[in-house]
């Protein structure tokens, strides 16, 4: 059992928790993820590590309440326990030799993008962060990004806060004005990462995208998290849990990944509604 040491609501749909898991806290690096189960009968879900405190032995996770399991997790109070917490899994974000980086985060993906931006900042790289949200109420981690970014641009889709538009708008502006980066790291909805990649392509800047496919064991056993890369015209199968979650974005078949992500939409909707009803009854 793993204790929820602290819990904080970042916005009405996004929660931050710090979980007591000393072995994971000692090892986890930005870009890696953990697998958790809320209770004895729960499903296994992957969540990217949003920070660690190795001395206290805690791991920070930030999650959006999108389905049954995240609703159950959110129903747990500070001081309560979750059943299982295993990690760190996946390969850490590649940072070697990067002097100037642009981190592009979208929605709850910013929770993963933030520790990546922090890590680059800590290593002395010049960090530009572009973070986008649907509206003002959903903005998270703005202060944290400001603290680790040399330049920060905040966007909202509906213009209710900061700049109006999506994250590709300022990215394109910068690139067209002659700005250049050693690397662009994008983390967020697949459709956003696809368009960030397309925006960067004419400028020949390397882009990595953090993939978050459906996973079960997360340890390189089931193969459910497979994604297709196109390498030299050939389709190559990779597994996000052991080969990723970061991949060269120019090689990713985003359309296929989006289609695979919708495999269980009906089931998930039903499970979420059932869980919400149960939680309401309390």
């Amino acid at each position: 059992m793993y204790k929820i040491v602290r819990k904080k609501e970042l916005n009405p749909t996004v929660t931050q928790m710090e979980i007591e898991a000393p072995l994971v806290a000692k090892k986890a690096k930005p870009g890696q993820f953990i697998i958790l189960r809320v209770d004895e009968e729960g499903e296994r879900i992957p969540l990217t590590v949003a920070g660690t405190d190795p001395e206290e032995g805690t791991v920070k996770i930030i999650f959006q309440i999108v389905g049954a399991t995240t609703a159950l997790l959110n129903a747990k109070a500070q001081g309560e326990y979750i059943q299982d917490f295993a990690g760190p899994l996946g390969v850490p974000t590649h940072t070697d030799g990067i002097k100037k980086v642009c981190v592009v985060g979208g929605g709850v993906g910013c929770a993963i993008a933030m520790p990546v931006a922090e890590e680059f900042h800590r290593l002395g790289a010049e960090v530009t962060s572009i973070i986008g949200f649907r509206n003002k109420d959903l903005v998270i981690l703005e202060d944290e990004f400001r603290a680790c970014s040399d330049k920060l641009v905040v966007m909202t889709d509906d213009g209710s806060y900061a700049r109006h538009g999506n994250v590709t708008v300022p990215l394109k502006e910068m690139l067209e004005a002659g700005e250049t980066f050693d690397l662009i790291v994008t983390i967020g909805p697949l459709i956003m990462m696809k368009f960030v990649t397309l925006a960067a392509k004419p400028f020949g800047i390397p882009v990595t995208a953090s993939m978050n496919p459906i996973m079960i064991d997360g340890t390189g056993m089931c193969g459910g998290c497979r994604i297709s890369l196109i390498q030299d015209g050939k389709r190559v199968t990779k597994f996000a849990c052991v080969d990723g979650p970061d991949f060269n974005a120019y090689e990713i078949d985003f359309d296929e990944a989006m289609s695979r992500g919708r495999m269980y939409t009906d089931f998930e909707r039903h499970a979420y509604e059932k869980t919400c009803n149960l939680l309401k009854k309390g």
């Binding site: 079960i216 064991d217 056993m221 089931c222 193969g223 459910g224 497979r226 297709s228 199968t237 078949d253 296929e256 289609s259 695979r260 919708r262 495999m263």
Partner: peptide, 15 residues
């Protein structure tokens, strides 16, 4: 093999 409805036996049995 990436179509929805294609499983590895490991995934199907694990589920």
């Amino acid at each position: 093999e990436s179509l929805k409805g294609v499983y590895s036996a490991n995934e199907f049995l694990t589920r």
